[in-house]
């Protein structure tokens, strides 16, 4: 059975790590579009996948957050990756499987998955 006490254990475990996650810092931000258009296209499992991948990686400089409609509804689910000092990368028509590749190759590996970006998908 899961208990509230497990949360204290999570807190203690996170405390022991260098550079705790916070929102106002220098790390990588993964932002998932979560308006009606995004949700209807399947944004929820994409966000879920990024949360799982981030927790599993132990990377404390990565945050997962969400935004509303950015006006490109036909490309939803849309995910933006923001890294300090780099240009924003916009991934389109995302799925949980594509999220895994983006996480491994871009977030961890530092190499943009060009074929999923808006530039490669624009009609």
């Amino acid at each position: 059975m899961k208990s509230l006490a497990e949360l204290s254990a999570i807190r203690d475990r996170m405390k022991g790590q260098v550079g705790s996650r916070s929102h106002d810092l220098t790390g990588t931000k993964i932002v998932v579009g979560m308006a009606t258009c995004g949700i209807a296209a399947g944004a929820r499992p994409v966000l879920n996948a990024f949360v799982e991948l981030t927790a599993a990686s132990g990377k404390t400089d990565v945050t997962v957050s969400q935004t509303g409609c950015i006006g490109i509804c036909q490309y939803e689910p849309v995910v933006e990756v923001l890294e300090p000092g780099k240009e924003k990368v916009t991934y389109v028509k995302m799925t949980a499987d594509k999220a895994k590749r983006v996480f491994d190759e871009h977030i961890v590996g530092g190499k943009v998955v060009t074929e999923y970006t808006i530039g490669s998908n624009a009609k």
Binding site: E6, L7, S8, I10, R11, M14, N48
Partner: peptide
């Protein structure tokens, strides 16, 4: 609100906490 006491200053939207909520 009941989780915050256990979390102290660990943010509620920490991925590990989110997964705990989902699995709970």
């Amino acid at each position: 609100r009941e989780l915050r006491g256990q979390l102290g200053d660990l943010p509620l939207d920490t991925p590990e906490v989110l997964l705990w909520v989902r699995d709970y």
